[in-house]
């Protein structure tokens, strides 16, 4: 394996709050290689989102080391090394879908022709071709979230950080988007960090599942998925899948009991 994309070593993060310090991350060590799809799962408060924000340089760890592409997270952020997808689509209501996908390209100074090409291509990638001129409110929640993924993909960073992107969607839409996301990952070969609190989602998507538990936020189990790379939706009924899901559930329960 080449140099890891994300390398965390004994990462600590303590927030100062009005009620005293809160340890959001404790001794988190993890290496993520190129092209991996790593799912982070755990109850709320386990630090999975905080870890993602640390990788993105949006939070600063108070201990340990963290590198992204061999740089500090802040340098990586300035080098625009990753795309970030938030829980809510957060599209600008005053911009069309195309305009929203174009936003990072404008900020990063791509040429006009290049912007148009990339908007067209990434919208096609998330199967939103033909919606370029529509406004966000004209799209369903699922389509809005796909547009926000296109926005994160448009400048073609090798690393995609996704923070419960499908959390607000209903299960039917979520299933479809999960399937599409796997296809997208397969086509682009990007490294994915995906935060979720759904066990089936984590097992279905991930090549590696990181189970976390709260108070303090820490890793309790890391599961290498034996599932094949090509995963139809009904793989979720196979004994293999159910066995992994069971192990995740056990890990979550153990973490809760220990806390």
């Amino acid at each position: 394996m080449s140099d890891p994309v994300v390398r965390a070593d004994a990462l600590d993060l303590t927030f100062r709050t009005g009620d005293g310090p809160v340890q959001a991350l404790k001794d988190v060590s993890l290496d993520i290689g190129r092209g991996e799809f790593v799912g982070f799962i755990g109850p709320s408060g386990c630090g999975k989102t905080t870890f993602l924000r640390c990788v993105a340089g949006l939070e600063t760890p108070t201990g340990g080391t963290l590198t992204v592409n061999g740089m500090t997270p802040d340098e990586a952020r300035r080098a625009r090394a990753y795309g970030y997808v938030f829980q809510a689509a957060g599209l600008y209501p005053w911009r069309t879908i195309g305009g929203n996908v174009r936003l990072p390209l404008e900020i990063m100074g791509f040429s006009r022709a290049e912007r148009a090409r990339r908007v067209r291509e990434t919208l096609a990638l998330v199967e939103l071709d033909g919606f370029e001129k529509k406004y966000p409110w004209q799209l369903s929640g699922g389509m809005q979230q796909r547009a926000s993924i296109a926005r994160a993909l448009s400048f073609d960073a090798d690393l995609l950080l996704m923070d419960e992107p499908f959390g607000a969607l209903d299960e039917i839409v979520r299933d479809r988007l999960n399937e599409e996301l796997l296809g997208l990952w397969d086509r682009t070969g990007k490294t994915m960090l995906f935060v979720t609190h759904s066990i089936p989602e984590a097992v279905y998507l991930s090549t590696r599942i990181v189970v976390m538990s709260p108070r303090p936020g820490r890793i309790t189990d890391v599961i290498d998925s034996p599932l094949p790379r090509d995963r139809p939706l009904d793989i979720r009924d196979t004994p293999e899948f159910i066995r992994i899901a069971h192990r995740v559930r056990e890990g979550l329960r153990a973490g809760m009991d220990a806390a």
Partner: peptide
């Protein structure tokens, strides 16, 4: 905060944040 974080992930300058987010949002 999420809107502002999004622009931070693009390493957007203060001027870009103002022109592309704050100003249109304030209209």
């Amino acid at each position: 905060r999420m809107q502002l974080d999004l622009l931070r992930t693009y390493a957007a300058s203060g001027a870009a944040t103002f022109l592309k987010l704050r100003l249109p949002a304030s209209l």
